[in-house]
Each structure stands twice: as structure tokens, then as C-alpha cells.
Design a binder for these strands. Structure first.
Lengths: 205, 205
DNA sequence: TAAAAACTAAACTGCTCAGTTTAAAACTAT
DNA sequence: ATAGTTTTAAACTGAGCAGTTTAGTTTTTA
């Protein structure tokens, strides 16, 4: 009775297909991926694949939708509410920066952006599970800290946006355009520390 | 004797083709654009088009390369060196934010990112004419201001990256994913002002 | 005005690829 | 084991599209 999914699935190889599709779509994007390739990578015949999914579009949607959801899980504000604000922010900044430049986050970002016009719904799903979700979590913590008087913030939304953007400094664009793809912990830590430094200079109580 | 371009061009309709190709590529991206469509929009026959450009790839490269160059021109630091630092930064922030969310900048950004793997050279051209160029210009001004003692910055590169990122707050991602596409002057001004406020809190002398 | 050069429409080639079909084989359950 | 279901390989259809060819028309040039 696991038919909670929108797509009909009666066979036992659905997960294989989803896994294969995930691999290929995340590697090649929507246009770049061929259904034959997906079938091959999945270890499944094309006919079987098409018995699960009506067409390539829906398969793509299902896969990317799932990745967007997964992203939601990965954006877990690792803020320790018991720690002093500055340390908590430092941890959050490091976690956020790491995530933003990670292979996974970069892939989802690029694919969703590339297919934005073809799949506006996905674009929105991405936005809500990703940036918006992260923003909302951050706002909660900032509001709490502001109410404790540990931070003085007039426009909390703006502060949260700024915090996030500060965590992207340099690395994010370089990762996106493939100038570099792997960053050392030191690089990430530096960006995170500078982000907190600047943020606290403005909003520290 | 205007054969300074890498591609052979003997006819009189080259510019028409480039203009048409620009329109179509910027609208539909590389895969999405069809050569027949480009020919039609250019008001030129396909055969003529192919007499100028060896293939679709090179036409695309030429067009996007030109757009990247044009971007370089549009990133003109509108910083008035005679103005007080804070005002100069304010003007720069407003100009930068406006540019970053403009249709033009957003299009180039998205197309270059989407075709990143297919055209790594373009990706690099984009990066150098866009982000890197903007960064370098900003660094110059920040360094000058720092040397005058109007700002106190230890890591000028990082400060410049942060300034740029601060100018993206909220609007850039929303524009990229099509959540919104037009922003009022007030919205832009707000982001710019807040960016300067935060920047000066950290780096103001 | 005549030869040369540039341009045109339209048909054509060849390839890729999404989606279907078919007939057979492998699995599952009773 | 046998009936019913799922899966398979492989061939096929049909569409889209890059790039070419052809045979003829327009523009340039001298």
C-alpha cells in the first residue's frame, strides 16, 4: 500500500529506474540525458521504464522533485541554541558555506536553473525547498537571538539574506562556473569567519 | 578591411545574422534555438547563414562572447572618486544591484551557466568579463579608499566579494529562478543601502 | 550592361532520440 | 507445474533538426 506517489508503479524495479534516472539526469541535465542511457544505467529495459513513467518529462520531474526535497533535509540549521550567539552563527555559517559549494547543492542549483523555463514548477519547488527554506530557518534563529537582545536587528529578513549571501563570497560563483570545484576546509572556514565578522559588526548587540 | 574577426565574413548580411542569432540564442539558449529559426528571425536564408559561420556552435560562441564583452562595458564602476567614500559606495551599490538583477545580466548569467559544460571556454569568458572584472574594479576603489584611511580593510579581496554578495541579497536569487523579474527602484535602493550599511559597519574607519 | 559575387527557397541527407510494438523469456503465486 | 504478470531485447515509427545541395534570382562592380 505504498501507492502514495503520484505516478503509477506496480513493478519491482521502480527504484532502480529512479536511481538510474537520478544519476543520469544529475549528470547530464534534461536535454542531455537520453532515455536509452537511463534504461541502460538503471539495468532495466526501455519498455519497463515506460511502463512506470508516462514520459521523460515526468520522470525528470519526479527525480528533481525528490532531489529538491532531499535538499530540504540537508539544510538543517546546525545552530545550537544553547551556544553563545557568535559561536552558533559561526557554526551555521560554516555549515551553510559548505553546503552551498557542495557538489550536490551545486548540481541541483545548476540543473534547476538550466531547466527553469521548461519546468517552472520545478524552479519553484527548488526555490521553496532550498533558498526559501534556508532563509526561513535562519530567520527563526535570528529572531530568537534578537529577542534575547543578543543581536540588534531592525529588518530580520534582510539580515538573513545578507548572512546567506556573505556565506557565498567568492566560492559560490567560482563553483557554479566550474572555475574550481573542490574547496579546502580552510577556504570554507575563512569565508564563514569573515561572514560572521561582518555580520556581527553590523548586527552585534 | 574589417576582417579582424576570427570568422570569415565576406557578405553584407553578417550583422543581420548576428543580431538575429543574438535574439534567438538569448531567448532560447543553445539547444533550444534552431538554426532555421535564427535564419528566419535574421531575415536571411539558411545557406547564407552557413556561408558565414561554419556551424551552430561557432555562431553561438561568437554571439555569447560578444554579450560577455558587452557585459564588461556595462560594469562601469560608477564610483565618483571625489565623493565621500560612503556616498561613492552607495552609488556603486545601487548601480551594481541594478545591473545584477537586470534582464540582460540575468540572461547572460543563466545562459552561460546552462551551457557551462558544453562550452567551458564561454564559461570562463563570462567569469572573467563579469564577476572577475567587476571584482577587480571594486578592489581598485577599495584599495584607494583604504590607503586614504577612509576604510580599514585587512583582506581587500574578501571585502570586495562581500560587498558584491551583499548587493545580491534576496533579489538576485529571486530573479534567477523567475520568482520575480522586475524590481522597483525602491526595492533595489533598499538592498543597496543595507549592503552599504553592513559593509561600513565592518570596514568603516 | 555584362560578368562576378552574394543571396534565396526549398528540397534533401543523415543523425538523434522519444516513445511504441512485438514476441519471447523470466519471474511469482497458487 | 501452470496461469498470470513483469520484464526483456530489438526493431520500428515519426518527429526534429544540423548541415548540404541545387538551380535560380538579386545585387554589386567595373
Amino acid at each position: 500500500m505504498n501507492t502514495h506517489s503520484p505516478i503509477a508503479r506496480k513493478g519491482r524495479k521502480v527504484d532502480q529506474v529512479l536511481a538510474g534516472a537520478r544519476e543520469v539526469f544529475m549528470r547530464d541535465g534534461f536535454e542531455g540525458a537520453s532515455v536509452d542511457e537511463i534504461a541502460k544505467v538503471s539495468g532495466v529495459s526501455k519498455a519497463t521504464l515506460y511502463s512506470y513513467f508516462t514520459d521523460k518529462r515526468r520522470l525528470f520531474q519526479e527525480v528533481i522533485q525528490a532531489e529538491c526535497d532531499r535538499m530540504s533535509g540537508e539544510i538543517e540549521a546546525r545552530i545550537d541554541p544553547t551556544a553563545p550567539t557568535r559561536e552558533a552563527l559561526q557554526t551555521a555559517a560554516y555549515g551553510l558555506t559548505s553546503f552551498l559549494v557542495s557538489r550536490f547543492a551545486q548540481r541541483v542549483f545548476r540543473i534547476c536553473l538550466a531547466e527553469r523555463d521548461r519546468f517552472p514548477e520545478l524552479s519553484q519547488t527548488y526555490f521553496e525547498n532550498g533558498p526559501k527554506n534556508g532563509h526561513d530557518q535562519l530567520v527563526l534563529h535570528l529572531r530568537a537571538a534578537a529577542e534575547c537582545g543578543e543581536l540588534k536587528i531592525d529588518n530580520i529578513d534582510m539580515a538573513a539574506y545578507q548572512f546567506t549571501e556573505l556565506c557565498k563570497a567568492d566560492l559560490f560563483v567560482r563553483a557554479a562556473f566550474g572555475v574550481e570545484s573542490d574547496f579546502s576546509q580552510e577556504e570554507i572556514a575563512l569565508v564563514a569567519e569573515e561572514a560572521v565578522e561582518t555580520f556581527m559588526a553590523r548586527y552585534g548587540a
